[in-house]
Design a binder for these strands. Structure first.
Lengths: 114, 114
DNA sequence: ACATCATTTCTATATTTATAGAATCATGAA
DNA sequence: TTCATGATTCTATAAATATAGAAATGATGT
């Protein structure tokens, strides 16, 4: 009897987002964007700062955007990137929820904060 | 002048951990282990439950373990796996910290807890 | 229209990760 | 020791991701 027929979309989305974070380059990009604030940073400058440019940068940004962690808007001939804060926070909460939420009825002894 | 010479180990570790979470299979494994509680679950049973067995399961577990998100201990001929709660929580905090920590001087409106 | 800047797409290659069967190792029981 | 069980390693193949140069696209200023 199979048990893992169709994974919950929630899980799929989370996996995609985590995979997008699973790279030093992209984590650097995200970190830089966080420090840039809500105004965002043009792709060129972003790339200079994190040491990734051209098609490789596009490639990494595409993953962050399609995972919903970064948004882009055009301004003149540049494209500004910003962090999707709510998404990142949501992901963080997902992680906490996975770990601690429903352990209230499962734990055998005390195990609230290790 | 190069800017991205040696990435901070913190970033490397985080990227490894996120990459370990960036798969539905491994996310399912983690979720199942969370529900198993601190006693842990033998690999065989774990695999049955999430629909991944044999060498593939070993492969996924290896990543979770080496990322520090799962721990293993032997009991008889079985190996019990448990979630490293502190690690997962730490990762969750890392994410929050990346997003919100130093935005105190940067944010335009209020954005403390959404 | 033309030149220029910013970014993407195209194309190709290298590297990593995923999947899986078979053989092997490790533990405990008869 | 021999056997059965639980898990890993070995080997091979498929698929996804990373890197990168060149060409193409889109936007702006002259």
């Amino acid at each position: 009897m199979k048990n893992a027929s169709a994974p919950l979309p929630e899980l799929t989305l989370a996996a995609t987002a985590f995979a997008a974070l699973g790279s030093e380059a992209r984590l650097s990009i995200l970190r830089r964007l966080v420090r840039a604030g809500p105004e965002g940073l043009p792709i060129g400058e972003l790339g200079e700062d994190v040491g990734v440019t051209g098609s490789v940068l596009t490639h990494h940004l595409k993953q962050l955007v399609s995972a919903g962690l970064v948004t882009q808007r055009r301004e003149g001939r540049r494209i500004l990137c910003s962090v999707a804060i709510a998404e990142v926070e949501g992901l963080s909460r997902f992680l906490i929820a996975e770990c601690c939420a429903d352990r209230l009825g499962t734990r055998p002894k005390g195990h609230t904060h290790d």
